[in-house]
Simulated scan of single mutants.
Amino acid sequence: MSNQLRVHAALFLVTLIYAANYSLSKDVMPVYMTPFGIVTLRVLGASSFFALIKYFVAPQDKITGWADNRRSILCGICGIGVNQLLFFSGLNLTSPISASLLQTIAPIVVVIASAILLSEKITLPRVLGIAVGAAGAATLILSRNAQAAVYPHATLGNLFILANATVFGLYLVLVQPLMRKYHAFTVLARVFLVGAIIAVPFGWHDALTANYASFPLKIWLEIGYMVVFLTILAYLLNNWALKYASPALLGVYIYLQPVLAVLIAVGLGKDHLTWGKAGQAALIFLGVWLVSQKPKAAQVPAVAAVQNE
């Protein structure tokens, strides 16, 4: 299997894992566990796993220098701590489809951050894409639909998801130099340690006081899914992909996640797709497509995308 094919296979698997989570998390929150409680279990499980694997796989590899250490701390704050708290808080308040659509704003943030931090050029199509994508996100966040009774705080939840996509887009740009310089487990062990320090104080009490004895097998399996697949496997595959693709080169996978999320949510009866949401999705997709276009003089054949949850 060629390296390019492996990248595509990894990204498709990550996309499927993330798409399913929008609906599966709704079974757990808020009846069995709070959003912050789930985040605590996720980051503790993942930070322990990556620290252990790093010890055996790359014991001598260490992040050195003030600049790289500072960058790794920022990655832990943006990519794990703040990111996870915002995502599950938002998903708890809004619908699976709205959350999955707003996640696609991340590539627009990546392009803006890349222009500021990596001096990538912002062309006219990208400026238009930013404007169109922002318009689609704004209408989605502010819209009120028939599900308002089910999600009375959907606007706040949508804002949390938008903030989550923003900090994760910044993380993708910040972490790229580290992933190309150090072993993947070295980077992941560090960022999850920092993320745990940020997130655990918010959810420690909720994780300790949850009524685990009342959890049916289905809930235990879904929590295990969120810890093992959604956190450990997805982050590992995402960060591995960053070694072979620029964070600004976001392609078809960023569109595929909400499509799969919609199919899963509708199939499980967790949400409903309306014409209004379809129009908002079209605006966001158009915006992401425009900002993903590289200037002709700097085009790179590889196309990949990394996603967030």
Rank of each mutant, 00 (worst) to 15 (best):
L233T: 11
L249I: 14
H272C: 05
Q176D: 12
K218F: 00
S214N: 08
I264S: 02
A245V: 15
V187S: 09
V262F: 08
L178G: 10
Q176I: 01
L170F: 03
L178T: 10
A234D: 03
L236Y: 00
M226H: 15
Y244W: 13
P201Y: 12
F229L: 15
P216V: 03
L273W: 05
V262H: 03
V173G: 07
V175L: 00
G269P: 08
W220G: 13
L230I: 04
W220S: 13
G267P: 12
E222L: 13
I232L: 08
K270F: 11
L236R: 00
L221P: 09
K270Q: 12
L273C: 13
P177R: 04
Y182Q: 05
F229Y: 07
W275P: 03
A241E: 09
H272P: 01
F192S: 08
Y212M: 05
K277S: 06
A265V: 11
I264M: 02
A207W: 10
I198N: 07
Y182L: 05
P258R: 09
A245P: 10
Y244C: 06
I254Y: 04
T186W: 01
V266E: 03
V191K: 02
W240V: 08
A199T: 09
L237F: 14
A210T: 12
Y253E: 05
Y253D: 02
F168D: 06
W240S: 01
V262Q: 02
M179G: 08
L260T: 03
F168K: 03
K270V: 04
L193C: 14
V200F: 06
P247Q: 03
I232Q: 01
L263E: 04
F192A: 09
P201L: 12
A210I: 12
I264Y: 04
A196T: 09
Y225E: 06
N238P: 04
L188V: 07
H183V: 12
Y212R: 07
N211R: 14
N211V: 15
R180Y: 06
W240K: 04
K243A: 04
G195N: 11
L217T: 04
K270H: 13
V259A: 10
I223R: 05
R180F: 05
E222P: 02
G269A: 04
L217C: 08
S246A: 09
Y253F: 15
S246P: 00
A278L: 15
K270L: 09
L273D: 10
L273R: 07
V194F: 06
G251A: 11
